[in-house]
């Protein structure tokens, strides 16, 4: 199994497209950081204008943690698209190039192959998230320094600097689970398709549609929102509540983990029954 995983990882990391996601994240984060370096103070004044009428405010609110927090908001919108570019091709790429026929003549079980590809896809997602964490949090802290974080949900919360690192780590871990769920969905579509583009576009279309439905606070969508994967992707933000609702976070993470397992088993069943014709 380990050898199979290594082979799958080798395939992923020798493809040029695997680095598109890393490059895109680097550019997105650097652009965001550059913009904040340029206009961070103005943004801070914009956000706190009303508060500053009543309060003197001392201290650095435009700091590395705030930038990382803002950049993290890109996570549930853009990073899924970067993940599926690679994971959406993991099965269908081989089907398209006809290598499955050759691969499956070897003494490799189909279940083993599916598992190895899933694990390789998860490892790729992990690498992407680690890279994202290092450049968003690491570089932001180096450039902007540390400080308290102002978060505005249904109230204004000032989270103290020494209470932030664990929140960010937890947010990235949650983000990793969310991205893995998206990766698993794309791998399911990938196993069903015989061309590379189809599963990538299908997953992207589903994410965009579901995100739209999840974001609208309309009663017509309220009933279906709990059943959409995208409704749980942004729950990493709950980690930044003044009083963290651990139960809600565990529930949301469990829903995502359940999605991963369901997608994996459907892929396993489907691929074991699939006629390899290409």
């Amino acid at each position: 199994m380990l050898k199979l995983i290594n082979i799958e990882l080798y395939k992923i990391f020798t493809q040029k497209r695997s680095y598109i996601g890393l490059a895109a994240i680097l550019v997105i984060v650097l652009v965001a950081q550059g913009a904040m370096l340029w206009e961070g103070q103005a943004m801070h004044e914009f956000i706190t204008k009303n508060l500053s009428d009543a309060f003197f405010m001392y201290g650095n609110l435009v700091n590395g943690y705030l930038i990382s927090f803002l950049v993290l908001n890109f996570l549930w919108v853009h990073v899924p698209l970067l993940v599926v570019i690679v994971t959406g091709d993991i099965f269908s790429g081989e089907a398209q190039s006809g290598t499955f026929r050759l691969l499956l003549t070897r003494p490799v079980s189909r279940s083993g192959l599916v598992t190895a590809k899933f694990i390789a896809g998860i490892v790729y997602t992990f690498v992407l998230m680690i890279f994202f964490a290092i450049i968003s949090l690491g570089i932001s802290l180096i450039w902007f320094g540390k400080g308290d974080l102002m978060v505005i949900f249904n109230s204004v919360s000032i989270l103290p600097e020494d209470d932030l690192l664990w929140r960010f780590i937890l947010a990235y871990v949650y983000g990793f689970i969310g991205m893995t769920a998206i990766a698993a969905l794309s791998m399911l579509f990938s196993a069903m398709a015989n061309n590379s583009l189809g599963p990538i576009l299908t997953t992207m279309a589903i994410i965009i549609l579901f995100t739209m439905i999840s974001s609208f606070n309309l009663s017509i969508f309220a009933a279906i929102q709990p059943f959409l994967i995208t409704s749980y992707l942004d729950s990493w933000q709950l980690v930044f509540s003044f009083e963290v609702d651990t139960g809600q976070i565990i529930f949301d993470a469990s829903v995502l983990l359940l999605h991963i397992l369901v997608f994996y088993f459907i892929t396993l069943v489907y691929f074991n029954r699939k006629d390899i014709l290409t």
Partner: peptide
């Protein structure tokens, strides 16, 4: 107080 709610933070579902 009129803080730009959508600027930072999750509002959907809350």
């Amino acid at each position: 107080i009129s803080i730009p709610l959508k600027f930072i933070g999750k509002t959907a579902g809350m």
